[in-house]
């Protein structure tokens, strides 16, 4: 296959020209601010690492950092456990049923995160659906405090980020030829062992991609923790926002942002490596 074909039949110059507007936008809206806050974090007011020192030596900030990572991890695992069966269902259904399930998965993706998060307030508040139901069933005496807890953040974030888990897994499940599970079954594997030995390992690239996306988005997620988390369930992103907009400590906010960025890139690199290893055993 010639290079021309790989590039969709466009010459390099044409392709570059078409990509130019986006490249400019990225430069102005992403690279420039990035350079801005990285330099702010080390140059304001004078060349210093004091902001980083403050972050890494404060037990409070380190606890927020750790709890953010833990929250992102829990959300990722929950999304995987809940999303995988749905991905299997989607990959097996055909016709109208497949269309309905796909729509159910995609509609939340098209609904603004803000709307979905406020919906969770209605569900979790003191006179919300969950409390009302539990009280009328006589299972609890007085309303539980669910809103403004880490639990609420985890539940809502899992729901919000679920499509990012389901879609890549579904796509990798679809790419497994149907003879493979069939052959395994015919060669003596029970349904469970077909899954454990064939379906699951062959879906790992999708699982990795889904986990990577959910984990990274969860790490920097702002809206849901800010609304549902309250002051006790702070995360890195709410901390950044607080430092920048409430305390106007821009250099410190910048330093936290840089740490979040490095953390994210590091995790992405690890996942990429794992994906490559996985990909090699599949396609070498």
């Amino acid at each position: 296959m010639s290079e021309r074909h790989i590039r969709g039949g466009l010459s390099k110059t044409t392709a570059a020209l078409i990509a130019l507007p986006l490249a400019l936008l990225m430069l102005v809206a992403f690279v420039w601010p990035l350079v801005g806050f990285v330099s702010t974090s080390v140059l304001d007011p004078a060349p210093t690492l004091a902001h980083y020192e403050k972050l890494f030596t404060s037990a409070l900030y380190m606890r927020v950092l750790a709890s953010t990572v833990v929250t992102a991890f829990v959300v990722t695992v929950a999304a995987l456990v809940l999303g995988y069966p749905i991905a299997i269902l989607m990959s097996r259904l055909r016709g109208p049923a497949a269309w309905i399930v796909t729509t159910c998965v995609l509609v939340p993706l098209w609904t603004p995160v803000l709307v979905r998060t406020y919906a969770w307030i209605i569900i979790l508040q003191r006179q919300g659906i969950v409390n009302d139901a539990l009280i009328s069933l006589g299972m609890i005496g007085r309303p539980l405090t669910m809103l403004y807890t880490t639990g609420a953040v985890v539940v809502a974030m899992t729901q919000v980020l679920m499509p990012f888990m389901i879609l890549p897994i579904q796509s990798s499940l679809r790419s497994i030829p149907k003879e493979l599970p069939q052959a395994a079954h015919g060669l003596g594997a029970s349904h469970f062992r077909v899954f454990a030995n064939v379906t699951w390992p062959l879906s790992l690239p999708g699982v990795m991609a889904g986990c990577l996306m959910v984990f990274i988005i969860a790490l920097g997620f702002y809206i849901t923790p800010a609304i549902l988390g309250g002051p006790r369930a702070q995360t890195i992103s709410t901390l950044i926002s607080q430092q920048a907009f409430e305390l106007l400590n821009w250099p410190f906010a910048s330093a936290i942002s840089v740490v979040l960025l490095v953390l994210t890139l590091g995790i992405a690199a690890v996942f990429r490596r794992m994906l490559r290893v996985e990909g090699m055993s599949l396609h070498a």
Binding site: P177, L180, P201, L282
Partner: peptide, 11 residues
């Protein structure tokens, strides 16, 4: 059983 496209486990 031998399948049409072999159905070997790629992993």
């Amino acid at each position: 059983m031998v399948f049409q496209r072999y159905a070997l486990f790629p992993h």
